[in-house]
Amino acid sequence: MASREEARAVDDGTRHIEVLALDLEGTLISNAVSQIPRRGLHEFLVECVERFPRVVMFTTVPEARFRAIARALAGEGAVPEWFPDLEYVHWHGAIKDLRFITDAPLERTILVDDCGDVIQPAQTEQWISVPLFEHPYEEPGYVLEEVLTRLPRPKRRGEK
């Protein structure tokens, strides 16, 4: 769970976020083997693409495996039908550096991820932490719904 300061840093109303990067394993689903979707995943993804001009997948799961998992989840109705075609971030190393996202202004990019160990230390203000989704896969409430409350809302035209 993010601290009040972390939540304020992301949603202080002064930053216009252009890119939302999402982790897969432990964040949106259990893992690449069991592939259990987190409660409210479909609705979360729909809200994300409505709020942000660009949503990308930033995961350690290889792209072909991500696409197969995404197709299976879409076939089950657990995610929107466009999810298997989501932009995939190619990266390497042990740290998820937001600079791997092509044509993404660093200061206008946010990463939603369960694992703090992979976050670039200089980019922690752009990280929204979520609890690891792990066995027994039962959570009180809707974690992804709570994440939405911590994501900035885009300004409407004419708003300052």
Rank of each mutant, 00 (worst) to 15 (best):
residue 97 D to S: 10
residue 82 W to H: 05
residue 89 V to W: 04
residue 144 L to Q: 05
residue 100 F to Y: 13
residue 119 I to W: 00
residue 116 G to F: 10
residue 97 D to M: 06
residue 94 A to Y: 14
residue 116 G to M: 10
residue 121 P to H: 09
residue 95 I to K: 00
residue 110 I to G: 01
residue 75 G to W: 00
residue 89 V to E: 01
residue 145 E to G: 10
residue 145 E to C: 08
residue 89 V to F: 02
residue 130 V to A: 02
residue 105 P to I: 10
residue 142 Y to E: 14
residue 140 P to C: 12
residue 98 L to M: 06
residue 149 T to I: 04
residue 146 E to G: 03
residue 128 I to H: 05
residue 86 L to M: 15
residue 85 D to F: 14
residue 112 V to N: 01
residue 118 V to H: 02
residue 83 F to L: 08
residue 106 L to E: 11
residue 127 W to E: 07
residue 96 K to Q: 04
residue 133 F to E: 01
residue 103 D to T: 12
residue 109 T to N: 05
residue 145 E to S: 13
residue 145 E to A: 15
residue 76 E to F: 08
residue 146 E to Y: 07
residue 117 D to Q: 13
residue 114 D to A: 11
residue 143 V to M: 10
residue 132 L to Q: 09
residue 77 G to N: 07
residue 87 E to C: 08
residue 142 Y to I: 14
residue 126 Q to T: 08
residue 92 H to W: 13
residue 129 S to K: 15
residue 143 V to F: 05
residue 98 L to V: 03
residue 112 V to A: 00
residue 87 E to R: 06
residue 95 I to S: 00
residue 90 H to K: 08
residue 103 D to H: 12
residue 101 I to G: 02
residue 108 R to F: 06
residue 78 A to N: 09
residue 151 L to G: 00
residue 87 E to S: 04
residue 134 E to K: 15
residue 88 Y to A: 03
residue 133 F to T: 01
residue 142 Y to W: 15
residue 118 V to C: 10
residue 125 E to M: 12
residue 99 R to F: 10
residue 95 I to N: 00
residue 153 R to S: 11
residue 127 W to Y: 12
